[in-house]
C-alpha cells in the first residue's frame, strides 16, 4: 500500500519537474533573443540601410532629427540643400513608414504583436543613444544637439 503510494507520488513529482523544466526552457528561449532575421525584417533593414546613405547628410546638418518616439522628423528645412528640398518630406515619410513597419514586424515575428509599442520605445532610446555627436534628437518639446 505505502509502496504504491510512494510510486504514485514519485510519478507526480516527476511530472511536476518535467512541466517546470519545459516552462523554464520556453521561458529561457523567449528571454534569450528576439528573432530579427525574418524575411520581412531583413527587407526593411535593407531598405533603411540604403536610405541612410541619403539621410546621413541631413542628420549631420541638423535638417533632420530623431524624435522621442523612435521616428525622424524634418526640423530645419533651411539646412536642406536646395536640390534636395523637394524630396525631403517624402524621404522622411518613407523612413518613418519603414520604422513603424519594423517595430510591428519585430513584435509580430516573435509572436507578440502587442509588444509593438514597447519595441518602439526601446528603439527610441537606442537610436538616440547610438547617434553620433552633432545630430539632433527630440527631448521634451525641444530639439537638442548631441
Amino acid at each position: 500500500m505505502s509502496g504504491s503510494l510512494n510510486r504514485s507520488n514519485m510519478h507526480n513529482i516527476k511530472s511536476i519537474f518535467l512541466v517546470g523544466l519545459m516552462c523554464f526552457a520556453t521561458w529561457a528561449q523567449a528571454e534569450a533573443d528576439l528573432d530579427v532575421a525574418t524575411p520581412a525584417i531583413s527587407a526593411l533593414k535593407n531598405s533603411m540601410q540604403a536610405r541612410h546613405a541619403q539621410l546621413a547628410a541631413h542628420y549631420a546638418s541638423g535638417a533632420v532629427g530623431l524624435t522621442k518616439d523612435g521616428l525622424i522628423a524634418l526640423r530645419d528645412i533651411t539646412a536642406v540643400p536646395l536640390k534636395d528640398r523637394q524630396g525631403i518630406n517624402a524621404l522622411v515619410a518613407a523612413e518613418n513608414d519603414d520604422r513603424v513597419a519594423l517595430y510591428k514586424e519585430i513584435a509580430a515575428g516573435n509572436g507578440h504583436p502587442e509588444w509593438r509599442g514597447e519595441i518602439q520605445n526601446t528603439f527610441s532610446i537606442r537610436w538616440i543613444d547610438k547617434e553620433p555627436a552633432g545630430w539632433y534628437y527630440e527631448s521634451g518639446s525641444a530639439w537638442v544637439k548631441k
Partner: peptide
C-alpha cells in the same frame, strides 16, 4: 529587445 535594437 535592447540587444535586438542595437544590432539592427
Amino acid at each position: 529587445a535592447e540587444k535586438a535594437a542595437d544590432k539592427i
